[in-house]
């Protein structure tokens, strides 16, 4: 593992110089601010735009701060995960295709270090962005909707973060295993289509990584710990470990496919 540091430095330089280190957090923070602001000022915005029928006295739902956290998570579930897929689908497959990987693979480098360096740096960028987004949202929610218990936010963000690590690991492992296009397609299937399937027919089971985003909201709803919560967390951690092993193995197996 002595080469891990060099490879981590390379990944950080890469994402700093292709600006992912900057634009991804900015987008997550913008989402985190826009969500409470639009929800709070929606009635006024609609009135000022003025396309409500004359004299109508529309009742806007009274949102709580906790609702905004949940709806912001909805934004991250769609836009956030789409960004993760699009920004990182070529992390390994792209290096193979362009041939830039060749001059790494001919060196005495462990593929566990190689995969780990990408995994840790992408997770750092994505989790940092996610936390910055939720932090900005917390500030705005506190001003516009009133405070939400910090412990509840922490539990919520903590659970949701594990799902995000799962999403990153899925994308990276697929990038190690397949071409960039196939990795993107399969990532969308696993992270979006399976999510929909799980919510449609998932009433029959309680343990699944795709339920983590719903389970994550329990502290905000004032609910008790849902059945299957701890098992889902455990299963997701196990899946992340298995995907990591598969990803490191596949990067090594596909090393000879690099363009020479």
């Amino acid at each position: 593992m002595k080469n891990t540091g060099v490879l981590v430095q390379k990944e950080f330089r890469e994402h700093s110089r292709n600006f992912k280190l900057y634009w991804i957090p900015i987008v997550f923070i913008i989402l985190g601010i826009v969500e409470p602001v639009t929800n709070h000022y929606l009635p006024q915005i609609m009135e000022s735009v003025g396309n409500l029928p004359e004299g109508s006295d529309f009742m806007w739902p009274q949102f709580q701060g906790t609702d905004i956290f949940v709806s912001l998570m909805g934004q991250y579930q769609l836009i956030g995960i789409l960004i993760i897929i699009l920004a990182f689908m070529g992390s390994i497959s792209g290096e193979r295709k362009s041939g830039t990987a060749t001059l790494l693979y001919v060196r005495p480098m462990s593929f566990v270090s190689y995969f780990f360096s990408k995994w840790i740096v992408i997770n750092a960028i994505v989790l940092g962005s996610l936390w910055a987004g939720f932090l900005a949202a917390s500030y705005y929610i506190r001003i516009l909707f009133g405070p939400v218990a910090f412990g509840d936010i922490l539990k919520f963000v903590g659970t949701y973060s594990l799902w995000i690590v799962f999403a990153v690991t899925v994308v990276l492992t697929l990038s190690a295993s397949l071409s960039t296009g196939a990795a993107a397609g399969l990532s969308i299937l696993i992270l979006f289509v399976f999510q929909v399937l799980d919510s449609v027919i998932g009433a029959f089971w309680t343990v699944s990584p795709w339920k983590l985003s719903i389970y994550a909201t329990y502290p905000l709803q004032g609910d008790s710990v849902p059945t299957g919560y701890w098992m889902s967390l455990t299963l997701t951690v196990v899946l992340i470990v298995l995907l990591f092993i598969l990803g490191a193995y596949m990067s090594k197996r596909n090393a000879s496919k690099t363009t020479v």
Binding site: F19, Y22, W23, I26, V27, I29, I30, I33, V34, V37, Y41, Q44, E47, S48, A136, Y140, I143, L144
Partner: peptide, 26 residues
Amino acid sequence: MEELANIPWNLIMPILVLQLILAVVA
């Protein structure tokens, strides 16, 4: 338009600034 005047621009400002940074970097 007085409703727009009621919107606290100091809350909206950070969004505009971040969008500007994004556009300038791009």
